[in-house]
Design a protein around this nucleic acid. Structure first.
Lengths: 107, 107
DNA sequence: TTAATATGCAACCGTTTGGTTGCATAACGT
DNA sequence: ACGTTATGCAACCAAACGGTTGCATATTAA
């Protein structure tokens, strides 16, 4: 899961995901046309996305097609974000309680 | 939003969020007891969490209480993850179509 | 007022990261 | 077979990162 968070941390990689979201199954060279960076740079980013299992590569001849894999995002959403979202109300009441404690007359 | 993704990328910072999730409103020194790192190191991490608005600090005298703010996580979930999750089915069909195209007899 | 407590700030350092250039390899078209 | 196309791999570099040490500052307690 650490790999997923790390992969999402970079804006270029998020842009790549967005690009694939727009048109799934693009080759490396196709993806290069949308991001001003060398092919090798993009290939590195794709490597991290693939390592994080956010993107799945499929070879067709000499072309490498890149497909989105939404599973890790779903996992993060379910196992991490929802857990914290569930504590939303609690966190807010904690904050207001903290603010109340700041009032001098409340001590 | 970039700050939020960057803040979430480090396991120590996620551990801090978990710790606050366990007991909201802890001071810096309290948080230090759960993570084997110097106070200054933790303070740096908290600084990034605060910059990303994931944690809101409240001063009470010389103590700095740290409160979770679930809003950014909710935003990320809604504006980013859900969008990709929505494409889940599509991504999978794309993948299987890609796999089909690999079969030589399908060309 | 003085000592202890809670935090902030800055410099420093090794490692990782983001990106480049250069070259190698494999597959396709002619 | 040969040139072109699509990709991989390695070295290299500056910048950012994660973490430390040392010192400064502000608040509380005696």
């Amino acid at each position: 899961m650490d790999d997923v968070f790390k992969a999402l941390a970079d804006p270029s990689r998020r842009a790549l995901l967005d690009q694939l979201h727009l048109h799934n199954g693009q080759t490396l060279n196709q993806l290069c046309q949308h991001l001003r960076m060398t092919r090798q740079g993009i290939a590195k980013h794709l490597g991290l996305l693939i390592k994080a299992d956010l993107v799945i590569p499929l070879w067709r001849g000499r072309e490498k097609l890149h497909y989105l894999n939404p599973a890790p995002l779903k996992q993060i959403s379910e196992r991490w974000i929802d857990k914290h979202k569930a504590a939303c109300l609690r966190a807010l009441t904690d904050l207001t309680k903290g603010l109340d404690a700041l009032k001098p007359e409340s001590n």
